[in-house]
Design a protein around this nucleic acid. Structure first.
Lengths: 103, 103
DNA sequence: TTGATATATGTCAGATATGACATATATTTA
DNA sequence: TAAATATATGTCATATCTGACATATATCAA
């Protein structure tokens, strides 16, 4: 795993304090985090494609601009449930979401 | 939507008290619930394929038998995060999960 | 039957996620 | 440039999820 990726993860609150500990991230945890990051990225893409600001998307989702920012930033406080609900609200189909995950 | 499906949803805690209210389930909510049910079913299949009891799977996940039962039952208190972590722990790959969702 | 094992259901205290808010920092526009 | 708009970051009260436990109900073997 590249240093840059580790930095990104740490910045977003994933507890990865040193290389050893990082290696202890189980394969499952890593996979889950990477799935979240993939969905985050797709969320931002979709929002921009629709020419919405984070504030506008937040209104659509009945959430807040700051939470949308956190979703797009891949913050560790954001669940898959919230990401998926958001993608669906932006018009993604279940199939489209499956496609995002098949990588 | 068939009556039987409505009954299943209600039984599992999805607030769907009457037909009118049921119709108000947004398309997104329905899609999310169906995705969860799909993953629930796959979880049970996988567990049985591995010849594990719910108790044994719970130990593997550092969870409890009752929570595994709820996961498999599609209980509304169970998040996608937990379902996906469980599937990954049972050896499902990200790709396999994408496949489950592509339906 | 009976006892053993598996699964389902209800509850709850503690853990985690949420929207909201304030405010910092970019980015865009005039 | 400066002002306006957009996005990022930190915090918090409330809401929701979690593992654990008790206990009910199946399922199965003797």
């Amino acid at each position: 795993m590249k240093k840059s990726k580790k930095n990104i993860l740490e910045k977003n609150g994933w507890k990865v304090s040193n290389a050893d500990e990082f290696l202890k991230l189980s394969a499952e945890e890593s996979a889950l985090i990477e799935m979240k990051l993939t969905l985050s990225q797709n969320l931002r893409q979709l929002r921009l494609k629709r020419n919405l600001s984070q504030k506008e998307l937040a209104a659509l989702l009945e959430s807040s601009q700051s939470r949308v920012a956190k979703m797009e930033a891949g913050d560790s406080s954001v669940t898959l449930d919230l990401l998926l609900r958001s993608l669906l609200s932006l018009g993604s189909s279940r199939k489209a979401i499956a496609k995002m995950l098949e990588q």
